[in-house]
Structure formats: structure tokens, C-alpha cells
Design a protein around this nucleic acid. Structure first.
Length: 489
RNA sequence: GGCCCCGUCGUCUAGCGGCCUAGGACUCUGGCUUCUCAAGCCAGCUACGAGGGUUCGAAUCCCUUCGGGGCUACCA
């Protein structure tokens, strides 16, 4: 890392191109950008790369903003908060790019290229056939007056191309070390489309310079575009010591070792939110993909993450996304939540699932069950199946469990339990347990596992539930007895 | 095809020449606990892609090879 950066404020940017919902790969990058900025006390800049307006939509842009907010990755400059280097949507900076493009053209760094897409494609095809690296052949670097006149009468709209000089580009990637690209394999690239709109290659470099970005942490798919970006810095007259430091993050791969896509598992962050994953769990898990604190700890808070995160500890090989581990971490985070916090987070899920409407009475009852289920759920959405039996008006035993209490043995247990409970006035869980153990275990010599299984199904409707006696207490005497009656044939 | 990146248990990782008969976590298997499911605790399975070097000594350095991935657009 260049020493001159030592005293400079670190400025990191996250610059997605929202052509869809942000996915876990994007977010992992955003997280590292954010963590590095916070670790160094620098600035986190959020920029929207929407130069490709055919693919980027306002809805996706808004979704990206909402996702970052939801995750708690707050930015210092960018959409909604503004900043001294705005605007932060590239579509609002078109005049800036046009200015630089004109400058590059005047300086001779860039030139107009009139080759049509078809011609380009045909020539690339020929190159491939001849086993030559396909790429622009430099045809329009020099155009004769005749050709130019012809193109113009044909009404061709030229693109602006950057001239790549002979030689090579070497830069030091903070994660991968020195990387060199021979310019023979970096053809002259397009800066401005035929319609006058800028391309990523132009906008990204101009903005990073103008926004005084010091560190570019991004996905490794952009590694081979770095020499082009550096070429633009040169044309802009940026001094080498002022180039940002590049750090290309390894990929996050799907479960089946293919690149992450909708095909192999859910990738959009919105999907995880709807499934009841905690933002801090997602961040914690994602932080572990390509980075580790160095010691054996894995459960880190956002605060700890910012304290511990360094680029030096990011490594270079791709990581596979593992839903099981995410779930495990999510469960850990849920168990760490205070009851108040857990209640607040769980309520929307219960309302959405139609378990409750949100009245004070309902919430009070949910609050009482939370301690029982906090360690039994891996996601917030799991609460529904755990507490549903307390709220349903037309109770019914789930179909797969119904046969399990229809047998003679179970019916005997249920009848006996009903007798005992009808005679029981105290309706707290320890009294209930005492009475039922005495009758079913001691007197009838049943195994607890057998005896209580039938009761559990009759009371909660499922063979999986919160602890039985606590469940009965919460359900209340009348409803509990009614369910036993209902279960007895 | 060319250029570039990457290669430790099934997965995420620790490891930056001796502390490694390779540690942790998730998963899985078995056990304990137990009213179910979880949680918790204990135990177990399983890895340095391969081949050459360098060195007293290599997972760690070098070379080759194999494998995976990215790029090769008027996408980003």
C-alpha cells in the first residue's frame, strides 16, 4: 500500500449497478467496503452505477438503498444523504463524463470509431478462427478522409474509444499482490456509446477520481478491467501516487460450486429478510466468507466487525455459500436477543402469517411464550408454527399427527388425563406436571415419552411444540380441557 | 483458444519454514441430558489436488502439472 495514503482519509465506495435485487455477493462486497471504512475511521460512499438505463430501473435502485439500510450499512455520502462530491447517481453526472470524454478526444487519448457492431463481430470471429486474441484491432485509430466522409454520409454514429498504448500495466492488488496485464490483451475500449451515453469504463474511473476514492474493494470479476480504469486515470492526468488502492474480493459461489445465481439457491437479500433472517446474522455470516477474525471466534457483532476488519485478512480464494451455517448463526443471534427485541422482530411475521392481528392481549401472550421458543427457532418465521396453537379459533390436530392419538393406548392416556385435569384447580405448569406425572407415570407406569406425546398432540396439534406443561398453562384451562375432549373418540 | 485469478476436512476457515501425528466452526454420525423439538455437553468421521525441487526441516518458498473460476461487449 502506497505510503502516501498513510495520512490520507480513507474513502471507500460501494458502487453497484442495480440491474436486479442486490444479492449476497453484492452485499458481501458492500459489507467489506463498509467495515473497512468504519475500521479506518474513513468515509463510506454509496454510488449508483446506472449508466446502462436499459437494465437498471428506479425500483431496483430504491431496493438497493432499502437493503443497505436494513442491513445497517450506513453511508456517509450517497443517495438520500448527499455529500460534497455528488450527485451519486451516475445518470445525473452525464455532463461530467461528456466533458472528460471531449478532453480525451482533444488530447488524442481517445478517438472516434465508426465500426459497426456487425463489422466488429465479424472481425472478432475471424480473430478467433485465426487463434488470435479477439479484441478491437485499432482500425479507426487512423481514418482516411474518404472513409470518414463515407461513414458520415452513411449516417454512422461513432463510439469514442480509448487508445491503449503499447506496453503493460502493473498494479498492486491489496489482496492478490502485483498483477500485470500486457496491453496486447487489453484492446482499445469504448468510453462513450454511439448515442453519446457513457460506459462503465469511463464513469467508474472518472467518479472514483472525482470522489477522491482511496480504496476500491470490489468483486474479482472486475480484476481484468483494472488496466482500463488505470488508463483513464492516466488520461485524466492523475498522478500514480494518487491512484486508489485496488482490492479484488473473491467470489461468493452458490451451493453447487457454480457462480451464484437464481438457479442455485436464493440470492436476493430480500428473500432472506422475508424468511426471518436477522440482518446482523446475514452480515456476520457473509463476513466469514473470505475473511476471518484470526482467532477462533465466529460470532461477532457489527461493532466487533468494524474493529477487527482489515483487508490484509481477506483472502483470495472463492467461498461457497452455505445456508446451513447461515441458519446456525441466525439461531445463535436469535438466542442473543432480549425478549423485547425478539418480540418486536417476531410480531410482523406473526401478523403476516395471520396468527395474530397485533392486539395488546395477543402480544402479551406471545411475550410469555417467547422464552420457551427462543432456543427452538432458527429463523423469525419459525415462530408461527410454534405459537399458532395458542391463537387458532378452530383448532385441529395436524393431519400427519392425528393417527398417532387414535390408537387405544393413546385414548386411555387422554381419558385419564382429562379426569385428572378436570379435578385440578391449580393451572400452573408445575402443578400440571405434578398431577399428570402422578396419574400417568406413577400409577399407569407409562414411559413419559409415550404418555406425554399423546397429550402434546392433543393440546398443540403437533408432535413438535414448546414444553407441554408450559403450553397448557399458556393455553388456559378451558381451552386445554376442550382440546382433550375433542381428541377423545 | 488467449489473458488473468484461485487450490487446507463435505462447507467456511486457522496456518504466513520447525508450536501441525494440521486447530476451530457448520454439516453429518454416535452418546449424555430429556415430556417432543430444540438448546447444551461429550465423542467420532473427514483435508494440505498431484509431481518435482530448495532446506537440517514445507501446508507454508520455487517450478511444472492438473483442476476450478473470471474476463475476452456500444454489460457492469
Amino acid at each position: 500500500m502506497p505510503t502516501n495514503l498513510a495520512n490520507k482519509e480513507v474513502r471507500v465506495r460501494f458502487a453497484p449497478s442495480p440491474t436486479g435485487d442486490l444479492h449476497v455477493g453484492n452485499i458481501r462486497t458492500a459489507l467489506f467496503d463498509w467495515a473497512y471504512a468504519r475500521h479506518t475511521g474513513g468515509k463510506f460512499i454509496f454510488r449508483i452505477e446506472d449508466t446502462d438505463r436499459d437494465r437498471v430501473t428506479d425500483e431496483y435502485i430504491q431496493a438497493a438503498i432499502d437493503t443497505l439500510k436494513w442491513l445497517g450499512l450506513t453511508w456517509d455520502e450517497g443517495p438520500e444523504v448527499g455529500g460534497p462530491n455528488g450527485p451519486y447517481l451516475q445518470s445525473q453526472r452525464l455532463d461530467i463524463y461528456a466533458e472528460w470524454a471531449a478532453k480525451f478526444l482533444a488530447q488524442g487519448d481517445a478517438y472516434y470509431c465508426y465500426c459497426s457492431s456487425d463489422e466488429l463481430e465479424a472481425r472478432r470471429e475471424a480473430q478467433r478462427a485465426a487463434n488470435v486474441a479477439p479484441g478491437y484491432d485499432g482500425k479507426c485509430r487512423e481514418i482516411s478522409a474518404d472513409d470518414l466522409a463515407r461513414y458520415q454520409t452513411e449516417g454512422r454514429k461513432p463510439v469514442l474509444r480509448m487508445r491503449m498504448p503499447d506496453g503493460s500495466t502493473t498494479f498492486t492488488d491489496a489482496i492478490r499482490g502485483d498483477v500485470t496485464f500486457d496491453h496486447n490483451f487489453v484492446p482499445d475500449f469504448v468510453l462513450v456509446r454511439g448515442d453519446g451515453s457513457p460506459l462503465y469504463t469511463l464513469a467508474v474511473a472518472v467518479d472514483d477520481v472525482l470522489m477522491k476514492v482511496t480504496h476500491v474493494l470490489r468483486g474479482e470479476d472486475l480484476l481484468s478491467s483494472t488496466p482500463r480504469q488505470i488508463r483513464v486515470y492516466q488520461a485524466m492526468g492523475v498522478k500514480i501516487e494518487d491512484y486508489p488502492t485496488f482490492a479484488h474480493l473473491p467470489f461468493v459461489m452458490g451451493q453447487d460450486n457454480a457462480k451464484l445465481s437464481k438457479r442455485n439457491g436464493e440470492v436476493s437479500i430480500a428473500w432472506y429478510r422475508d424468511r426471518g433472517f436477522l440482518p446482523e446474522a446475514i452480515c456476520n455470516y457473509l463476513a466469514l466468507l473470505g475473511w476471518s477474525p484470526g482467532d477462533d471466534r465466529e460470532n461477532v457483532t457489527m461493532q466487533e466487525l468494524t474493529e477487527l476488519f482489515t483487508v490484509e485478512r481477506v483472502h483470495s480464494s472463492p467461498a461457497r455459500f452455505d445456508m446451513k451455517k447461515l441458519e446456525a448463526i441466525n439461531g445463535d443471534k436469535i438466542r442473543l436477543l432480549s425478549l423485547e427485541d425478539l418480540l418486536a422482530r417476531v410480531t410482523p411475521f406473526l401478523i403476516k402469517d395471520g396468527v395474530i392481528t397485533g392486539t395488546a392481549d395477543e402480544l402479551a401472550l406471545v411475550a410469555k411464550t417467547l422464552p420457551l421458543i427462543q432456543e427452538r427457532i432458527a429463523t423469525l418465521a419459525d415462530v408461527t408454527s410454534m405459537v399458532k396453537f395458542l391463537f387458532v379459533s378452530n383448532f385441529e390436530v395436524e393431519s400427519e399427527s392425528a393417527p398417532k392419538i387414535a390408537d387405544e393406548q393413546s385414548q386411555i392416556v387422554l381419558k385419564r388425563a382429562l379426569e385428572v385435569l378436570t379435578a385440578t384447580s391449580a393451572w400452573d405448569h408445575s402443578s400440571l406436571e405434578q398431577a399428570l406425572r402422578a396419574a400417568l407415570i406413577d400409577e399407569m407406569a407409562l414411559k413419559p415419552r409415550i404418555a406425554f406425546s399423546a397429550l402434546r398432540i392433543a393440546i398443540t396439534g403437533s408432535h413438535i411444540s414448546p414444553p407441554l406443561f408450559e403450553s397448557m398453562e399458556l393455553l388456559g384451562r378451558d381451552a386445554s380441557l376442550a382440546r382433550l375432549v375433542m381428541a377423545i373418540k
